[in-house]
């Protein structure tokens, strides 16, 4: 019974993976019927180029900011939603809604908001006598813009998962701590947070993986990739954008693959040991 599934996984997951590794050893232009075998030449070219530093740094900054931002803000939102005040159900739906929206649609709407000439944000800033930052022309600000939107879109996911974690905390233990005189902050820091360890661990893995594979928002909001050259976007630009370097792009994809595998192994082998399961 497993055979059909294995064949499908082999055909649509492992075969492209193997093909990609093979293509990464070629100097091949997309659309060309011929290619030259260059061995590890594409890897050497990438790691010896100025682009490597920029791409790896941008990838790291984007991942840390989006994972950190989504998780911290998600936890804060979950704490706010984990109260018995009216309207929390509506608020929960509102917080989660951006997560299920299309990345392309979200990107287009936020582009209009950020537009320094015609955008809503520029209009509001002008009302206060300030000029809009040059979001589209300044690479640093472009990255900030994309990170902001990515966090906005994804914090709902973290909030909902954290909310589920908060609601499954043992009520009797928390009550006992309160009776023993532990304040809210102390209970949160010494009890809730450690007990949320498995939730945090799960979110850490899933959000890092999705952050490193984030593409739609970045592609829509920064078509020139200025300031937003993450590994996956660089692979796209090199392979399907202006350069059409299919082999070189495949090498960058392999670098991303190795990075993802390494991070996952580290997380499972090391971070998992630090998590306290109830």
């Amino acid at each position: 019974m497993a055979l059909p599934n294995l064949v499908l996984i082999g055909a649509f997951t492992y075969r492209p993976l193997i093909m990609n590794i093979y293509y990464s050893t070629l100097n091949w232009t997309l659309g060309s019927a011929t290619a030259t075998v260059v061995g590890l030449g594409n890897y050497v070219r990438f790691f010896s180029s100025d682009a490597a530093g920029t791409v790896l740094t941008t990838t790291a900054v984007f991942a840390v900011a989006t994972v950190g931002g989504s998780m911290v803000l998600g936890l804060l939102v979950a704490l706010a939603l984990n109260t018995n005040v009216p309207g929390t159900n509506v608020a929960r739906a509102g917080v989660f809604a951006p997560y299920v929206l299309s990345g392309v649609g979200v990107g287009l709407v936020w582009l209009f908001i950020f537009d320094p000439v015609y955008g809503v944000l520029a209009y509001v800033l002008r009302r206060f006598g300030a000029e809009s930052p040059r979001w589209f022309n300044d690479p640093t600000l472009s990255l900030v813009m994309v990170i902001t939107v990515y966090v906005w879109k994804n914090l709902g996911y973290c909030a909902v998962v954290y909310l589920a974690g908060l609601q499954s905390l043992p009520a009797d233990v928390m009550e006992a701590a309160a009776l023993d005189g532990a304040g809210r902050l102390r209970r949160f820091g010494y009890m809730s947070l450690p007990l949320l360890g498995p939730t945090t661990f799960f979110l850490l893995i899933t959000t890092i993986l999705s952050s490193l594979q984030a593409f739609d928002l970045i592609r829509i909001m920064t078509p020139t990739s200025q300031g937003t050259r993450t590994l996956i976007y660089e692979a796209y630009v090199q392979g399907f954008g202006a350069y059409q370097r299919a082999g070189y792009s495949a090498a960058i994809s392999v670098v991303l693959f190795v990075l993802l595998i390494t991070l996952t192994i580290i997380q499972i082998a090391w971070v998992d040991r630090k998590v306290h399961y109830a």
């Binding site: 055979l3 064949v7 492992y14 075969r15 193997i18 093979y22 070629l26 060309s32 019927a33 011929t34």
Partner: peptide, 28 residues
């Protein structure tokens, strides 16, 4: 037998992965 078939299938897929652009000889 199951493992043999599965292994053979994946091996064939791996070999077929080597299809793609022509890499031998001069470009036309």
């Amino acid at each position: 037998r199951f493992l043999a078939i599965t292994g053979g299938g994946i091996g064939a897929l791996a070999l077929s992965a080597c299809a793609g652009p022509i890499t031998s000889g001069a470009a036309p």
